[in-house]
Design a protein around this nucleic acid. Structure first.
Lengths: 338, 338
DNA sequence: CTGAAAGCGCTTACAG
DNA sequence: CTGAAAGCGCTTACAG
């Protein structure tokens, strides 16, 4: 216990307790706690002593109930442990902090039901705003919240069936660039190994892949594309299909960091080594032999941009829903230049 | 807007509004909202209609002000984007979710002042408990909070100057094992490249290194140890010192994932290639050539264990402060076996 | 089965 | 400069 403290275990002193001890009114305590003017130095000093002695700490939850705003925002994403999302969340946290907001975080694990429960739980706590990496494909459940004034910005994937701000990477453009890069290396049978097709980013990257192939006049046989879950076994099976048939691919564009990782792990087991471009950068990519060529997104930028847009809305910006698109960047390091 | 909804922008309906519309008392609405018994089906139905029509959603912040517990916990760590901490936070999040709690997250950026501000901000929101990766070396500022009943568990690094639960990796043991491994490969001049010595984990790992060297009867010259900041330039300079003098080290134990990463990046620039064991596993470690030998921690286990301990405290466990130590695991992959 | 009153810990709007 | 009353949106403890 601190010197002079008289706190009792499990009992939090309130402003009322402070007021009693300092022999002043409640409002005077409130003035001192909030640095409002109009308190004589002597009175203020008496209040401050009482605060220290009792170990008083203002209850911000009660305060916010009265004030209306909670100075908190919710961040909802797939998986806190995924490097892509963890860097994204760092971006959101930085902006939240600099705007004086606390951050609720939750993971949906790609489950629409869980996305909805978490988003509504955040809203029930009356967060001022929500940054959402959506898992579901229908966000109308947020309409009452939007109507009530809760700001919502979607990031990485767009809002579905409601009008809301979104911040996305140029997924199709990135896939076009990655594919075009492989085409320029002379590849004609290029494979695309992507995530579940109902995931927006996966569909967009597949679209970019197809566009680039079409632009190069190259056909895409069904056996060149595989969309599905990204657990190790599924990716391994898909890789075997793309590289194992009568006409195996000579190059591969992998649809996200988890897929790229699994493909890299399986590469030694393949009968040959296809050229490889991965969507998303990996931390040791440059240290592999050959270095891993990637289409890099800017996860920190996605998070920062989404959060900045959110706070602009909270500051009163009431324009129509905005859609921000962040560019991707091709980084050749060797694996895609064979 | 949903069919039949009459919500007005920026105005949230309250239980009072629902009660008025359903022509019942406030308490009856409360009963329906909380699935309490003692409401006739007809009355309940009238209330439910009013809830839907108004788009009512209970204000959980107000609820918790009255109930006492907030069903939320705070997680405070160094950096949300660091893979080690992001996996740790996933562990905390999982346990929080399964205990029905929401999670506040904040990053201290290794700044004691920021740690304190964030921890107290969480407490001001009246989180039920706090999981803290501490940055500072004096946590007495939390004494009033502990006294008031807020549960606090320290993770990755211990509490300083207060008694509180902690969940740590066996840092000294892991460093001993990594060093011993290099000794068994025949190395005699082994270097240790660690984080700032005031960081508990860094000091512990250095201690383990020294113990293993002493146990092997090997001297440790000052030029074999470097403790300092982990930005790229500092690590590069330290590496040059350890490998550049008249008696360069033949093997190296690196003190954490950031340091290992920087050393790996600089390795090609060195005149020779020292054997290398890294503290912390890296995602692509097995795919490097040679594979990276590591002393792996269990970050998810640290997070889960800390959160489980926290909720046990919240469930009433009032025993003396507990200190849990999680084992590390040596994973030989090639870089340490030369 | 139903609801009016008091209270959770603050701030707001006023009055002195 | 100071403070009593009302209210934020709920739940608790009672009474009918």
């Amino acid at each position: 216990m601190l010197p002079g403290m008289t706190t009792q275990y499990g009992i939090r002193p309130t402003m009322k307790d402070v007021a009693a001890r300092a022999r002043v009114g409640l409002k005077t305590v409130s003035r001192v706690v909030n640095d409002e003017p109009g308190v004589t130095p002597e009175t203020a000093e008496r209040v401050r002593s009482a605060i220290t002695e009792l170990g008083f700490r203002r209850n911000d939850s009660a305060r916010m109930l009265r004030k209306g705003r909670t100075a908190s925002v919710g961040l909802l994403l797939e998986d806190l442990g995924d490097p892509f999302y963890s860097v994204l969340s760092r971006g959101v946290e930085e902006v939240a902090r600099s705007n004086g907001s606390l951050l609720f975080t939750g993971a949906s694990a790609e489950d629409p039901q869980r996305e909805r429960e978490l988003a509504l739980a955040f809203c029930a706590r009356r967060v001022d705003g929500l940054v959402v990496v959506p898992a579901g494909d229908d966000h109308r459940y947020l309409l009452p919240e939007l109507a009530a004034g809760t700001a919502v910005v979607f990031v990485d994937r767009p809002a579905e069936r409601i009008g809301a701000d979104s911040v996305l990477s140029d997924n199709a453009g990135g896939a076009r660039e990655g594919t075009g890069h492989l085409v320029r290396q002379g590849h004609r049978r290029i494979g695309f190994l992507g995530d579940l097709p109902q995931i927006h980013t996966a569909a967009e990257r597949l679209r970019g892949f197809r566009e680039a192939m079409a632009a190069a006049g190259l056909p895409v046989a069904p056996g060149q594309v595989s969309m599905g879950p990204t657990d190790p076994a599924s990716v391994a099976a898909a890789l075997d299909r793309l590289t194992g048939g009568p006409r195996p691919v000579t190059a591969l564009l992998t649809g996200n960091n988890r897929i790229t990782l699994e493909v890299l792990r399986r590469l030694p087991a393949l009968p040959y080594r296809p050229a490889l471009v991965g969507f998303d950068d990996l931390e040791l990519a440059e240290l592999l032999v050959p270095g891993l060529t990637v289409v890099a997104q800017d996860p920190a930028g996605l998070g920062r941009t989404a959060a900045e847009l959110l706070f602009r809305r909270l500051d009163g910006d009431a324009g129509p829903p905005r859609s921000v698109r962040l560019p991707t960047r091709l980084i050749p390091r060797g694996s895609g230049e064979t």
